[in-house]
Design a protein around this nucleic acid. Structure first.
Lengths: 196, 196
DNA sequence: GGAATGACAGATATTGAAATCTGTCATCTG
DNA sequence: CAGATGACAGATTTCAATATCTGTCATTCC
């Protein structure tokens, strides 16, 4: 099916795996399918990824990293004041998830399954995100806009308190009317709590 | 097995059902099992509960009501100041769930399954709980300890912000060291946000 | 010689037939 | 006659046979 003349790279395998996952879903996506999509034998896939689990983990990491990068941009907007950045960051996270879940529910379910299989990768991702939040909190403390004995502890608290608006387990509730108001009520309460 | 002389009441059926669920788990607990435990035919059970689902829903409601009652006691302790009551209420909810999940994981899993099957009963329960929280917030506003434009909206925000410490989906994390510190960090932030 | 292949063993998933369960109701019993 | 029974039809679950997949590796190919 695919041009068999091209060199087989990890990158090409990952792309094919994403496509197979999109098509067949996480339960039916096999490495034989991936090999077939690439026009190679499944043994060749195993030359690049030791196991099926390793292949899926690599796909998961790729996907999580895309989310992180988008949010890192907001952390870097140092011209905006910390409170605005905090609100923008939390809203961007929520809206990104909400749209993924709403626009393509099957793909979202696929990635939710992958995330469940790769809790180590997810934990790393979560640490990355709380690190970004901590950076905003730290900047806020420095600017006198926030109070916090320990920005990382505070960041974790803010992240956990907004779990309902980014944890995939709550995805059903993200489509209901009024969620954005509920989101704002929580964020307002947290921002008030952060002020000196 | 049970004395067949006694009158068959809904109450006795509910007790037997809880026992069967405890023994066999939610997947294998059948109404034939319940009937057998009571020494009656399964047709007799259907005289008191229209369907298996209705029977399970009744068991679920019973269980949820027990949680509500314990917490209602804290709301009623009007001699304590609102902030103390709020903290005590949230801690009691967390500790109750944490102990149920930790002490008898199988039973906890059983009730989590039942809760998933009966989202209407759960929604009612959640409304009940946020109502209790709203009552504490309202008292706090009246006493000048809290600010809130709308106690019910604020109560919902507080409840959702602490979801990680009462939503059964997070039960794994409740056993990890440091959760109580994380709980306190979130509650502190929220309480600060509530103060005028 | 480095990459790709495909046959293979053991693990996992699918399938369809048999067993069990749910919910009804005509019948029985005290 | 109010309440309990158990036979029954259709729905659901279980289980074992069958097919497919995962991961390895000796062999092939460029």
């Amino acid at each position: 099916m695919a041009p068999p003349t091209e060199v087989l790279t990890a990158e090409r395998i990952l792309e094919a795996t994403e496509e197979v996952l999109r098509r067949h879903g996480p339960a039916k996506a096999t490495v034989v399918d991936v090999a077939r999509a690439l026009g190679v034998s499944h043994g060749s896939v195993y030359r690049h990824f030791r196991t099926k689990a390793a292949l899926r983990e690599a796909v998961t990491k790729r996907w999580l990293d895309r989310t992180s990068e988008a949010l890192a941009g907001i952390v870097a907007e140092t011209s905006r004041d910390p409170e605005a950045r905090l609100r923008a960051w939390l809203l961007a996270l929520f809206e990104a998830k909400r749209h993924k879940a709403g626009d393509d529910p099957e793909l979202f379910a696929t990635y939710t399954t992958l995330a469940g299989e790769n809790s180590d990768a997810v934990d790393e991702h979560l640490e990355d995100l709380t690190g970004q939040l901590a950076e905003i909190v730290r900047a806020g403390v420095e600017a006198g806009a926030f109070t916090s004995a320990d920005p990382l502890v505070t960041a974790r608290a803010v992240f956990q308190a907004t779990a309902r608006f980014h944890d995939p387990g709550y995805h059903r509730e993200w489509q209901q009317p009024g969620v954005l108001d509920e989101f704002e009520a929580v964020v307002d309460l947290l921002v008030r709590g952060l002020r000196p």
